[in-house]
Amino acid sequence: MRLRLLSVLVTVTLITACEFPPRKTTGVTDTVNNMSSNSGPLNVPALAGVPQGEFDSAVSQDRIFFDFDKYVVRPDAKLVLTRWVDWIKQHPQHLITLEGHADERGTREYNLALGEKRANAVKEFLVAQGVSPDQITTLSYGKERPAVTGAGETAWAQNRRTVAVVNMGSAL
């Protein structure tokens, strides 16, 4: 049962990785446009040459998932994170924002704190693998930006996540 759930998760993960490539490119020059249109398109096709697109195709998955009310990096996420480490080290010119999210089964303020814990847990993992902490920022959205809607564990499991967003701006 546990195995089956995991395989479903992996499948879902792969699908989402294909469906949601550069969801958002947050950069110094671009912040206003991005946030001022909360209703902007979600499924932007991957653009060759755009850092997020390069990151997504290189690492195959721009997000990792967490257990309910937990912020420990799961063993099944570590392979993906290792790929993130490689790419980030190879691209020191790019700043990465780690966006931490929670599912809707918690109160708003607690989930903001939990999202921050999830983003920070990934940051600590990356830094422990040799990524420069100056290249990473964290941002919690709590339960404010679910990836998918719907009531049920399948949806909630996809929303408990940390997403790596490659900024347009330069780290240098």
Partner: peptide, 9 residues
């Protein structure tokens, strides 16, 4: 208002 995935508040 708006869809839950990018809600306007």
């Amino acid at each position: 208002s708006g869809p839950l995935t990018h809600r306007i508040k």
